[in-house]
Design a binder for these strands. Structure first.
Lengths: 205, 205
DNA sequence: GTATATACAAACAAGAATGTATGTAAAATG
DNA sequence: CATTTTACATACATTCTTGTTTGTATATAC
């Protein structure tokens, strides 16, 4: 076989990452072998071991590549500067988040791997904390948004912004679970926008 | 080695089930070997293969033994006959549900296995549907409770019982995730009763 | 243009893990 | 009391995976 140029090598690296996502999604992380990934990527295990030390490192690389950009996008929308009603900002952010998942096949696969096809033990236990971290950021920012709504008087009086943020966070995480666990069998996808609207409407003045 | 009596055999079967839960929880389902389970149960793989055909069957047996009784308990509380305010019934049911998880070590381990240490592929994909089913039952019953509250006038007017049930379901499922994923590190456990109260208060008249 | 490092493929060695087959002593059974 | 199951332990064969090692053609650096 011929030696590849640097750009070609980078492309096979990407192919391996893509193949890993596919196979992880299909067989579960623990049960996929590097051989399967290599085959799906059209290379041999040699190439995989050249680019990644082992399966764990490959998994982490695959995950970061997809989730990091996603996280950035979310926060920029949530705290957009002075909206007329911050509650609209929250509503739109949530809607956009779920739209992202439903429309982007890659993101959806990644989430399904994270929630349904990965065992968080040993090396992977660290991933859990990395998953929780953006959650905490989200929680904090949503609370800020609710607080702004309180100031502007669009939040129904008597509602505590912190408590509302906690409730919304649970709501979001639950929706995630539903959406992923239902595997698109029930009509979950279509109900989501309505559910988000109802959830926010519950706390409008 | 001596042959055991029937009751003794039943006890080793139970020991294997207990050991399986422990080891599944510690190492993740895919990564635990029957050898590890056997060792933890104080027997050999021979005993495991005698009582169960393979790891999958053992997993299913372990799961059913714990989850079935739990499901029964939930529904009986949720639709308790004519409470003054059905919303109180929902609140109490949720509180009790989470208390169950926090207090019963076995239940907690089982849920952590299901949510964080199991890959839902191939044989295990069927488990997902079994998990979803009691969820649907819960959803339906909560909706009934909300409808009763509407009739009694304790549900804030203008709120749709069905939409409220969906919101509550997401809320519960999200709390599950938080509770299990946080691994008891943050002060989640203590906040839960308050969160439940807030969630229900949002929809009181 | 030569030397060297690169980007893999191919071969190798070793250790699990699984399923099955065999052995066996004691409990059931009659 | 003789026979037959039962409830395992032990041994075996086979298959998978993994990690490493070796080989090599060719970009790339100088």
């Amino acid at each position: 076989m011929v030696r590849k140029t640097k750009v070609e090598a980078e492309r096979t690296r990407q192919q391996i990452l893509d193949a890993a996502r596919q196979v992880f999604h299909e067989r579960g992380v623990s049960r996929t072998t590097l051989e399967q990934i290599a085959k799906a990527a059209g290379v041999t295990r040699g190439a995989v071991y050249w680019h990644f030390a082992n399966k764990t490192e490959l998994f982490f690389a695959m995950r970061e590549q997809i989730s990091l950009p996603l996280i950035d996008r979310i926060h920029s929308t949530l705290l957009a500067e002075d909206l007329a009603d911050p509650l609209d900002g929250i509503e739109q952010t949530l809607a956009e988040l779920f739209r992202n998942i439903q429309e982007c096949h890659v993101v959806q696969q990644m989430f399904e791997i994270m929630f349904l096809r990965c065992e968080y033990v040993d090396d992977f236990a660290a991933v859990l904390e990395e998953i929780n971290k953006p959650g905490f950021d989200f929680l904090r920012n949503v609370e800020i948004a609710y607080r702004r709504a309180e100031t502007k008087g669009t939040l129904r009086s008597g509602l505590d912004p912190h408590a509302m943020a906690l409730d919304s966070w649970s709501f979001v995480r639950g929706m995630f679970q539903h959406l992923l666990a239902s595997q698109g069998k029930d009509g979950w996808s279509e109900r989501i926008p309505t559910m988000i609207r109802v959830h926010i409407a519950l706390r409008r003045a």
